Amino acid sequence: MSPKTGRPSYLLDPPARKASARTRLVAGIAAAALATGLLGGLIGYSVGRPSETEASIARLQKADAERDAQQIIELTDLAHRTGDELSPILTAIRQASEAGRPPEPAQVGQWQQTMRQLTERFADPPSGTTATNVARGGLRSAVEQAAIAVDTLALAAAADAADERLALAARQAAVAVTTWSVAATQLDQINIDAGQGHRHVHLDTGGADGALTPDGAAEGHGG
């Protein structure tokens, strides 16, 4: 009986060949993992990256926000300057009505000239957001109503029926003050929303017109 023998040596894999096969296998697995990772990263980047349309919309929104913030600052400054000139005129109209005696025609003529200048400031307004446009439109309407009140006062100063015209002028002035107060409250709010804090541009007419008044918050705080 012949002795048992192992596998013939010529059928055995050389050690180097086995190591080479294992190396190729490991390298293949690593390459596949790397490719999978890169593909996943590319897919994630592609999914997370905003489209050109979204990027354009974001740029437009940012530009609109910056433009509106600048318009709010400019409108607030305009309201302060206009209010400082408008308040004494509306106060004088109310006082003339209470006294039953119109001011001198020369004084009323000066007020008419001032009102024409104030009205011109609000001509050809820029386009802004709805909130800013509402505030601007309210201020402009108040100035135009005040101009009508001054024109009515001029008629009262030159006519016999002064009492009736004085009363009418006072009513128009009161509407102008109320309209301004609504716009001023709106302007205060959009300043807060824009991070500027409270900005009070309410008219100082003695508080006898039933208009909205400032909220008492400190100027520039609360934004």
Rank of each mutant, 00 (worst) to 15 (best):
D160F: 04
V177M: 08
A146G: 08
A147S: 12
T130D: 15
S127M: 12
A146W: 00
L139E: 00
T129G: 15
R171D: 13
A161E: 14
D124M: 13
A142Y: 06
T132G: 02
S141R: 08
G138S: 02
I148C: 06
A176S: 10
A146F: 03
D151K: 12
A167T: 11
L168P: 07
E144W: 06
S141P: 01
V177R: 06
A149F: 02
T132R: 07
T179L: 08
T178Q: 15
A174P: 00
R136E: 09
V177E: 08
A173F: 03
T178D: 12
A123W: 09
L139M: 09
A154V: 06
E144Q: 14
T179E: 12
A159G: 11
T130R: 09
G137T: 08
L155K: 10
S127G: 05
L153D: 02
R165P: 08
Q172Y: 00
T130P: 05
F122H: 07
A149G: 03
E164P: 09
G128I: 00
D163R: 14
A170K: 08
A162F: 07
D160R: 13
Q172V: 05
G138R: 05
A154Q: 08
A173H: 02
P126T: 11
Q145K: 12
S127E: 14
W180N: 00
A142G: 11
T152V: 15
V134W: 11
D163F: 05
R171H: 12
A135W: 09
V177S: 05
V134Q: 13
L139Y: 11
A135V: 02
A174F: 00
A131H: 12
A123T: 12
D124H: 14
